[in-house]
């Protein structure tokens, strides 16, 4: 459950988010043009950017909780893997998702390792566990990011344009995984990909000029799409079925 009250955000005098209030108790897709505030909105949920107003994740004020507590409540998957250290291996990377559960100064436990392995297996990338992240393909890197976020075992998971850098085949693989994630997590999906949004079929928050409109279940009606995008779409979800 995410409760947002009067959320506003400004960068260098420009308003990026304006007075957004919303309670989100189900899956959500966030759509809108580039620069409309989608990513800033998602980053505010993780307290990664400065904002006015308040955000509560499962009744915890995101500004008040510790970094570790926050990591147990919400995980964020960026559009692209960016790693400075070229030598970190996939298994080590996924294990880092367990950091919030690890005792300070101590090693990761056997249980942490088992959990990391479980998610590598779930995403069918266990055979790559000793490969360095740089040697993985874009699709595999996206799966690595998801596995690392899953091992955080947070209730809420944010995916920021997960298919933006992927070919159609890998986009479909990721789409299927996102659909599966909806069974265990509250999934917040940021995307430009209307096909993907229609496929996951969540409520939609549509951003335009720093403001957001909420569509509980009627976003994919042709009249709405026609109004927002000026084009009609048929059978959007088919691509990822």
């Amino acid at each position: 459950m995410i409760e947002i009250d009067s959320l506003s955000c400004r960068f260098d005098g420009t308003s990026v988010l304006e007075n957004i209030s919303l309670d989100i108790d189900s899956h959500l897709s966030i759509l809108g043009a580039n620069g409309s505030g989608k990513s800033t909105f998602a980053k505010s949920l993780c307290n990664l950017v400065e904002f006015q107003g308040s955000i509560h994740l499962n009744s915890h004020d995101v500004k008040e909780i510790s970094h570790k507590q926050r990591a147990k409540l919400i995980s964020y998957i960026p559009a692209k893997l960016e790693v400075y250290d070229p030598y970190i291996e996939l298994f080590e990377f996924v294990l880092l998702g367990r950091f919030a559960y690890k005792k300070s100064f101590f090693e990761y436990t056997h249980q942490d390792r088992q959990i990391a392995l479980k998610y590598l297996r779930l995403l069918n990338i266990e055979h790559l566990k000793n490969h360095t992240l740089h040697s993985l393909s874009s699709g595999e890197q996206q799966l690595a990011l998801i596995a690392s976020a899953l091992s955080q075992e947070s209730d809420i998971i944010i995916l920021d344009e997960p298919t933006a850098n992927l070919d159609p085949y890998n986009s479909r693989v990721i789409a299927q995984h996102i659909k599966a994630l909806q069974r265990s997590h509250q999934v917040i999906l940021i995307t430009h990909d209307l096909h993907l949004a229609a496929f996951v079929n969540s409520a939609v928050l549509f951003f335009k000029d720093a403001k957001a409109d909420f569509y509980k279940n009627n976003f994919f009606q042709n009249s709405v799409l026609q109004k927002l995008y000026g084009v009609e779409f048929d059978n959007l979800a088919v691509r990822y079925e």
């Binding site: 993780c46 990664l48 510790s66 970094h67 570790k68 926050r70 990591a71 147990k72 995980s75 964020y76 960026p78 960016e82 790693v83 400075y84 250290d85 970190i88 080590e92 990377f93 880092l96 998702g97 950091f99 919030a100 955080q152």
Partner: peptide
């Protein structure tokens, strides 16, 4: 190890 990935990633996984 987390910081060697990125500052944002370290923060998201629970590092102050």
């Amino acid at each position: 190890q987390l910081l060697s990935i990125s500052d944002e990633s370290a923060s998201l996984k629970g590092v102050h």
